[in-house]
Simulated assay, not measured.
Amino acid sequence: MAMASRICNSVLVTGSNRGIGLELVCQLAGSPSPPTLIFAGCRDPAGPRAQELRVLAQKHKDVITIIQLDTSSPDSISQAAKIVGSKLKDGSLNLIINNAGVNVHLELSNTGDKEMVDTYRTNVVGPMFVAKDFLPYLRMAASQAADQTSMSCRRAAVINVSTLVSSIQKCPETFAMAPMYAYRISKAALNMLTKCLAEDFKKDGILVMAIHPGWVRTDMGGQEVIDSVKGMLKVISSLTEEDSGTLLDWEGNGIPW
């Protein structure tokens, strides 16, 4: 993967045991100038679904630290923040990629109270608590950055993984191919969270944006995941203040709310 310079010194990736999250950790660790610290958050670090992540972490044991982090549990997020904080040498964390999420492929007739609430908890409340509990470390990174005049991932940023089907404006053209109520609605709410955080964190010099990784079968590996993550990291590494509060796709194109 070609990145001209180090994307950041320290990064947290949630939902890192498979799909896009695993590939993000893999490409970050394998880059010519990897971050000094990569925190790979996943729900069950010792379980069978984290086997590939454990192998990857062992290969890059000086860089990757696996953190137990269940984004549907505020207590788990709070505990993860304390653990990460204890491992940060100067108390600063440059980048959070809120990748953990659930995609419920249910039409209206099959969508009940539980599906709506569970999806919202993971896709909206989880990223909100991650941003809230890790904010002191982002603030520290932003305040210690050599460049105090601009925003970037090298300074401090929160990236929320969203989707094209979160777009209310695009709904008429995308609904037939993906009539998923819980997922669409939760990701539209994630977009509003992104805008709120972008406004709130602006005073601290922390960039916040959302990114659509493309149509990737996230439970599968393979070339499409590799290409998507390459694109995502290229976009993330070149973000500026103008991109804060926006939704972009993995090629850097804007998506309307």
Score class of each variant (00 low, 15 high):
Ala145Glu: 07
Phe134Gly: 06
Met116His: 03
Val130Asp: 02
Tyr181Lys: 07
Pro172Gly: 02
Thr174Pro: 08
Ala182Leu: 00
Val117Cys: 03
Gly112Pro: 11
Met177Asp: 12
Lys170Phe: 04
Val117Tyr: 04
Thr149Glu: 10
Val125Trp: 01
Thr163Trp: 00
Tyr181Gln: 02
Asp147Asn: 15
Lys170Gln: 13
His105Met: 05
Gln169Leu: 14
Cys171Ser: 05
His105Tyr: 10
Met177Pro: 02
Thr174Arg: 10
Phe175Ile: 15
Ala131Gln: 06
Arg154Leu: 10
Ala146Met: 07
Ser150Cys: 12
Met151Trp: 05
Ala142Trp: 08
Ser166Val: 07
Ile159Met: 09
Phe129Ala: 03
Pro127Tyr: 11
Lys132Gly: 05
Ile159Arg: 13
Ala141Asn: 08
Met151His: 12
Leu138Asn: 08
Ala146Glu: 14
Val161Arg: 05
Ser167Tyr: 13
Phe175Gly: 04
Ser167Gln: 05
Ala182Asp: 01
Cys153Glu: 14
Ala145Met: 03
Pro127Ile: 04
Pro179Ile: 09
Asp133Asn: 02
Asp133Cys: 05
Leu106Ser: 04
Leu106Glu: 00
Thr149Asn: 15
Lys170Tyr: 04
Met116Tyr: 07
Val125Asp: 00
Lys170Asn: 14
Lys132Cys: 04
Ala142Phe: 10
Phe134Tyr: 11
Lys114Thr: 09
Ala156Pro: 10
Ser150Gln: 14
Gln169Cys: 09
Ala145Gly: 06
Met140Glu: 15
Val124Asn: 07
Pro136Ala: 09
Gly126Leu: 05
Leu135Ala: 09
Arg121Met: 07
Ala146Asn: 08
Met128Gly: 01
Leu106His: 10
Tyr137Ile: 01
Ser166Lys: 08
Ala146Phe: 13
Ala156Glu: 10
Pro127Glu: 13
Met140Asn: 11
Cys153Met: 08
Ser109Tyr: 06
